[in-house]
């Protein structure tokens, strides 16, 4: 509900259109070093953030991890080539990263998954199964928290044994448990008679929550994303 209440014009633009705009902007800016073009792109992107009522904090969250690369880049470009070029190059990266981030922020994950599954349909002829891709996406979303929990567990256990700083002591149990879990999950899915055939027109409607021993109960967000995936195709 809160998302709906905050939905702006940009939130309602179809994701496909936003992606095309992003692709066009990316291509156009790649062919120019003009400071005017970069300035215009930055201004328009900033206007987009204002229009979408997205806080600048969301923007900083993406740019800050890049800062340690962009700062030396600016210095190297400026000292070895020209400061105008340094401004253009860094301006282009900041503008495109900000614009791309705006597309991400104003599009739900579900809508983006739907776009990807739709875009994959033509590749069916070369053996790509959009339903299997959607299933892989929801499976990985479902098991990311499980494996992150496993990693934490292994870390705590090895720390108690005084092996907290030994990367192999952390990696090996995590890998063994992940591989075992893969076997269990496969069995669970096959036991629920998910068709292992090539003619899967529909997305699998099985929730991979069945292996009781290794996994915690499915979180609301993961199961809802699985539901969305099955509905969208």
């Amino acid at each position: 509900m809160t998302r709906r209440a905050r939905a702006s014009l940009l939130h309602r633009v179809p994701p496909g259109v936003k992606l095309i705009v992003l692709a066009v902007a990316g291509t156009a800016l790649a062919f120019t070093d003009s400071l005017w073009a970069m300035g215009a792109a930055l201004a328009l992107t900033w206007l987009g953030y204002a229009l979408a009522r997205v806080s600048n904090r969301r923007l900083l969250a993406v740019l800050r991890p890049m800062a340690w690369l962009l700062a030396p880049l600016f210095l190297v470009q400026g000292l070895m080539h020209s400061w105008v070029l340094a401004c253009a190059v860094v301006g282009r990266i900041v503008a495109l990263v900000a614009l791309a981030n705006l597309v991400t922020v104003t599009t739900t994950n579900e809508a983006m998954i739907a776009v990807i599954t739709r875009a994959l349909k033509p590749f069916r002829v070369v053996g790509v199964h959009p339903a299997k891709v959607a299933f892989a996406i929801s499976l990985s979303l479902r098991f990311l928290p499980v494996i992150a929990g496993l990693a934490q567990e292994v870390r705590d256990a090895q720390r108690a044994r005084g092996l907290g700083n030994n990367p192999l002591a952390l990696a090996l149990p995590l890998l063994v448990r992940t591989l075992r879990m893969a076997g269990d999950v496969t069995e669970a899915i096959e036991a629920r008679s998910m068709e292992d055939e090539d003619d899967d027109v529909d997305a699998p409607r099985v929730q991979p929550a069945g292996h009781a021993r290794t996994a915690s109960p499915p979180s609301a967000s993961a199961s809802s994303s699985i539901a969305t995936v099955s509905r969208s195709s």
């Binding site: 892989a136 499976l139 990311l144 992940t178």
Partner: peptide, 17 residues
């Protein structure tokens, strides 16, 4: 196969973790 999809998804999840 289903098994392949599970391995693919779980190693993506592992990499993310």
């Amino acid at each position: 196969t289903t098994k392949d999809v599970v391995y693919i998804a779980l190693f993506a999840a592992l990499t993310a973790a």
